[in-house]
Design a protein around this nucleic acid. Sequence first.
DNA 1: TTGCTCCAAGAGGCCGCGGT
DNA 2: ACCGCGGCCTCTTGGAGCAA
Length: 215
Amino acid sequence: MAWHDPGCTAFGPAACAAKPHLPGAPNLPVPCEDFNYEAALLACAAGERAALQRLYEQEAARLLAVVRRIVRDGALAEDVLHDAWVNIWTRATSFDPARGSARGWIYSVARNLALNARRDDLREADLPQETLQVLDDQASLAAWDAVNRAGAWADSAGRVGHCLSELEPVRRDCILYAYVDGLTQKEIAARVSAPLGTVKAWIQRSLVALRACMS
DNA sequence: TTGCTCCAAGAGGCCGCGGT
DNA sequence: ACCGCGGCCTCTTGGAGCAA
C-alpha cells in the first residue's frame, strides 16, 4: 500500500497545510492535531478510498512506530501495519462512535494485530499456555485502554511533543530517528555527522530528560 | 530438505575517562 | 557538574556447517 500524495491533506487541509516541521526533524508526514478521525473512519465505512488515504497520511508513521515497538521487527511491523490498514478499511463499518474515539479504535486494530503477531512468534517458541493467556489479557487490556482512554493518550502525546521541543534540535532528531524512523545508532551518527559515542550519549541523556519532563 | 547447533557480527545500554 | 567520547559487556540475529 503506497500512496504518493505528499504532505498533509486531512479534512480541512487549509487548517494544517501551513503547519511547519519541527526544525531539523526527519522528513515525516505532518500530523494534524485537528484531524477529524471520526469523519475519516465513517467515510471509509462509506467506501470512500480517499478517506483511507488521508488516514494513512495522518497516522502511518506513528502507527508504524507503535507496531514496531511491539513486534520488535521492522519487516514484520510493515506486514502487520499492512494488515491493519486492510482491517481498518474492511471493518470501518463496525466502528461505533458511541463506544469510543475513532483514533483509539484505529490504534486498537493495529495494536491487536501487532500483539497477535508477537504472540505467534512466541508460540513458535512453544510457550506455556498460561503465558499465552497473559498475552491475550494484555491484548484485551491494550484494546480497552486505547478505546476508553484516547483522550488521555492524546494528552500524553501532547506532552511528548512539548518535552521533545525542549530538547536541543540535534538531540531531538536523534530520538526521532531512533524511535520513529527506526534507524540504528550507527545510521543516526552518520546522518547527524556525530561520533557514535556522542549519539549514544545524546539518546541516553535525552531519554532521561524526556522521562523527567513527562513525570 | 529440514532442523539443530555453533559462531561471528552488529546493535544497544552502561560506564568511565578526560576536557570545559 | 556537565558533556563528549569511546570502550566494554550483553543480547540478538543471520549465516555456515552438519546430522537425521
